[in-house]
Amino acid sequence: MSVLELSGITKRYGIGAAAVDALREVDLRVEPGELVAIMGPSGSGKSTLLTIAGTLEEPTSGEVSVGGLELSKLSRAEQAQLRRRAIGYVFQDFNLLAGLTAAENVSLPLELDGTSAKAARAAGLEALERLGLAGRADHFPDQLSGGERQRVAIARAVVGERRLLLADEPSGALDSVNGEAVMRLVRATCQGGVAGVVVTHDAQLASWADRVIFIRDGRIVDQTSAPDGPESLLEVDGAR
């Protein structure tokens, strides 16, 4: 079962002559363990696609399913619960709360969802451990290195039962080596069974994905095909 399924999604802003279609008839499925990158220029609709996938915005038409649940069939309260339980976001600047420890930052979404503090902390510690941060759980963000803060942000995005990781330019302000570190973590996290969608205009970041989808004027216009193994690349290069 796909973790995320978008069918015939159209998003229209404004009405009448002023109406603009940010997305037009977009279909997208993301499977567990798959990392998909969405590439497009500013204004192409890629961020709108992410907010609709994250159920932060409703489409004008079309259907969004997360973990097999069709959003249009859920009440607002159920949608909010799904958002807290199933979907994690990684923001450009990581958005960690300075007054909370790493473990508290990671377990906060679960506590907001009504999970007991003890169970939330256990899930938070488990997520931190997956990201190799077990020893830093009780440190505050300003006691962590930049790389550790990235890991905390990713741990928060995949805490508990969260199986859909959405990231908008997740390494926007980082240099290329640190940007690569973020993508390595996102990639490794997806290999553990999470479905990931990363929106970016940066081809080097996008190339960490299994599949790169190109969006223009609100439409998916193209995508990369399943690649040959890296061996073919080295042979071609060696033959030069």
Binding site: Q204, S207, A209, V212, R216, T224, P227, P230, L233
Partner: peptide, 25 residues
């Protein structure tokens, strides 16, 4: 011309994916 540009863009991103896998592994 936009289709021509996209065909090349896709091909290059596919190459970049292959190189990135080399680096990843």
């Amino acid at each position: 011309v936009h289709e021509v540009i996209q065909a090349h863009r896709r091909h290059i991103v596919e190459l970049m994916q292959e190189w990135t896998r080399v680096k990843r592994d």
